[in-house]
Nucleic acid binder design. Structure first.
Lengths: 196, 196
DNA sequence: GATTTACTGACGACCGTTCGTTAGGAGGTG
DNA sequence: CACCTCCTAACGAACGGTCGTCAGTAAATC
């Protein structure tokens, strides 16, 4: 089924070169068909792009849910740390996350609203997933800070890792992650429960 | 001098639509000239793009240096916090930072290396600037954690704010920044000087 | 008059898209 | 089994546009 193949190759190229930087000819070339044949399966370039976006959205949410489900019982420490490792691994082994992080910063203008809608849904849903686990940690006294604040701070930490991954330096990413994580963990387990 | 005007309008459009998403016709249109006239001042699109990139790099570095210089004597608390505010203001009032953050995630492939080189220079130089001030804070006992680690963690904090700014939600940015800063500050002033 | 600047005109290349057509298989009908 | 119809997938050819670019010319500035 070349319907799937087209989406797969489109995802790959979009994740590297973005919407305008990727032509239908390029995609078709990788699939091994002519660009006109793409129109058998998709209404046009916009349609293909949105389909790819949607797929990536659904899949990424699913993977996050699975992770949280399978690691919920671990200590918050390893739960959060391994989720970061999981995030990094996914970025390297899968085009979806790459597509996701890269295309949301400069989406094609005429599709901006649609892209942003999916993006916000993604962030909110993921944040909520993690908030549950963090709330749990707060209740058991594992952390002392307001769970909502901790959740947001962790979300910011994930954002920063995303940036580093995009910029490409593996050494840089590791170094920054190590430092940011260290400070983050000290912060959320701080004894003085300061008010915000 | 329309040489400057061209760069200015190019910067504006590149910062919104990226390299491929911006045409010379669009730029010329905003300047009020024909697209061919751009070739009087620049060798071509690539040349214009690199010039704009270079300008943004130099100017942003300069602004950071000025900030650090003028606020060095403040407490680390306000020094770092206000630098974040400064960062946010610059993003909103100036196209350079917008260009910078947006174009480094998906640079045009044939200019990738050049772009990345400038980017790394930028990050390293800024990190070093802040490290000096942080080192100073460590010496005076204002913070307890390894200055290098604190610098990296702060750099990560800036990254995450950059992401939020690009995504566009002002409310989201404020909320996340508040939380991330809170945890960050607790972390770097933590009493147990844990080893990394 | 020399030099800078912007213009007109045109170029080939590529863009996304539409058209009509062809090959091949699935499924039903006689 | 043979025949016909329908559907899917991919094709070549071509469309109107836009892209970046180059050459030559006119206008403005010094």
């Amino acid at each position: 089924m070349s319907y799937q193949t087209i989406k797969q190759e489109a995802l790959h190229l979009f994740s590297i070169h973005g919407f305008e930087g990727t032509s239908l000819a390029d995609i078709a070339n990788r699939v091994g068909i002519k660009k006109q044949s793409i129109y058998t399966h998709f209404k046009g370039k916009d349609d293909l792009y949105i389909q790819v976006l949607k797929d990536a959205f659904i899949e990424e949410i699913k993977l996050e849910k699975i992770y949280v489900q399978e690691h919920f019982e671990q200590t918050l420490d390893t739960f959060l740390w391994q989720s970061l490792q999981n995030f990094i691994n996914r970025f390297h082994n899968d085009d979806r996350l790459k597509f996701w992080l890269r295309n949301t910063s400069i989406p094609p203008q005429h599709l901006h609203d649609e892209v942003i809608t999916y993006l916000y849904q993604y962030i909110d849903q993921v944040d909520e997933l993690y908030l549950e686990r963090i709330q749990h940690a707060y209740n058991t006294g594992e952390i002392t800070q307001d769970p909502f604040v901790v959740g947001m701070a962790f979300s910011a930490l994930v954002d920063s890792i995303g940036v580093e991954l995009i910029y490409g330096g593996e050494t840089r990413t590791k170094r920054k992650l190590k430092a940011a994580w260290h400070i983050f963990w000290l912060g959320i387990s701080h004894l003085d429960n300061a008010r915000l």
